[in-house]
Amino acid sequence: MSEPDLNLLIALDALLTDASVAGAARRLGLSASAMSRTLTRLRTATDDPLLVRAGRRMVLTPCAEALRERARNAVHEARAVLRPSASEPDFATLQRTFTIRANDGFVEAFAATLIAAVSAEAPLVRLRFMPKAEKTSAHLREGVADLEIGVVSDMGPEVRVQALFRDRFVGVVRKGHPLATTGEVTAERYAAFGHVVASRRGRSSGPVDVALAALGLERTVVAVVPSFPAAIAVARASDLVALVPGSYLNAPPQNQEDAPPATTYAFELPVATERITISQMWHPRLELDPVHRWLRELVRTVCRRQVPL
């Protein structure tokens, strides 16, 4: 029985990742004609076209879609087997870039502290924060992101999950707003004002509305914005009430003397809502990577220092 050419695995991974002969050729430093010949060999080996033309671009066949993650994992494991093992990374000279997928609220609340913690131990390590346009594990599976931070939702059974902290929502208004200056914030007073809601999907209702409805109350959502920083900005310049995670307000000033004066007022919601758990998620192929494990531990330490679990 003839042995398969295992070099084809690397080409297969590149082709399935880019869904493009030209893109895979650039990734591997080959000519387009050489990659085209390799694709022909892969088609013979797998007995499947793998990439087919759809208009002006190439798309994966169902077989290729099924093979994509297996090819990625096989290449990663092969490289790990052949990589020299080190009992402890030399963080003083380590050069590596990690991509962290997180929403704007997490970045504003924790990024500065996390960057400082990473730089203190590994000055040549870089962090790249990537926005979360949607909840999906594809970025972890395909190696586009090294870590994803947020609420766990349909990530798949293989994704590793570690809880970082529990969060709650609070109300935020501009300094001088009636809710900030006169008396207790009751459910009735809270519902009487217009509201601005942060939602990537454009949703205007949530658990707060359910809790208000149980009291026979309803709030008026005047605007929906895509992020918590945007909601804060709107509330700061209007009489609208914003709803944001408490952790977003816990970011310590980098310099207490230079900290700007408070322009907003935060208050506990007058209705009960469940707390949410914020977790970090990663693909199992990075489980035993000592540098990735170091990063995960730093993320957990920074988060729990600001917001207890």
Rank of each mutant, 00 (worst) to 15 (best):
A191W: 14
L67F: 07
S204F: 09
E188Q: 12
R285V: 15
A192I: 07
E287T: 13
C303G: 01
V52N: 04
V52Q: 06
A198R: 03
T182R: 15
A66T: 04
M130G: 01
R79Y: 14
P49N: 11
F106H: 08
R68H: 10
E69N: 14
R200I: 02
R305H: 15
R57E: 01
A86N: 11
R141N: 14
R304P: 00
G183S: 09
R200S: 03
G206M: 06
A233M: 04
T264V: 09
V302R: 13
A112Q: 13
K175E: 05
L298Y: 09
S2W: 02
T40S: 13
R219V: 04
T99E: 05
S31R: 02
A25I: 01
L124Y: 07
V299H: 11
D209E: 05
R304K: 02
R201W: 08
Q95D: 10
V118L: 09
T182L: 14
R27V: 02
L215Y: 04
R79E: 14
F169A: 09
A66W: 05
T44C: 07
A78C: 08
F129G: 00
A74W: 13
T38S: 05
F106A: 01
P157R: 05
V152T: 00
T273E: 11
I149A: 05
T220R: 15
R305A: 15
D258M: 07
F267E: 00
A54Y: 00
A71Y: 11
N255C: 10
S279E: 03
R166K: 10
I278S: 05
T263G: 06
A109G: 03
D258S: 08
R26H: 06
V225R: 07
K135D: 01
R141Q: 12
K175M: 14
T40P: 01
V21P: 06
R189S: 10
T113W: 06
V221M: 02
T273Q: 10
T273V: 15
L217Q: 08
P260L: 02
G23E: 01
R41K: 15
A266H: 10
V75P: 06
L217G: 04
A80H: 07
I278R: 05
A22N: 12
F165H: 11
A66F: 05
S153I: 07
I149C: 06
G23T: 07
R41D: 11
P260R: 02
S85I: 14
R293E: 11
E297F: 02
A80V: 06
S85K: 12
A64N: 00
V159I: 15
L164R: 01
R96P: 12
P229F: 07
A213L: 09
A45W: 07
S153K: 12
L60W: 07
V210H: 14
R174A: 15
G194N: 03
G216W: 08
D5Y: 13
L8R: 11
N103G: 12
A233Q: 11
V81N: 10
L51R: 02
R56Y: 03
V144P: 00
Y248V: 10
T38P: 07
E65Y: 00
E188T: 02
V196I: 07
M35I: 10
L249Y: 04
Q95A: 15
E268H: 12
S36I: 13
A191E: 04
P245R: 04
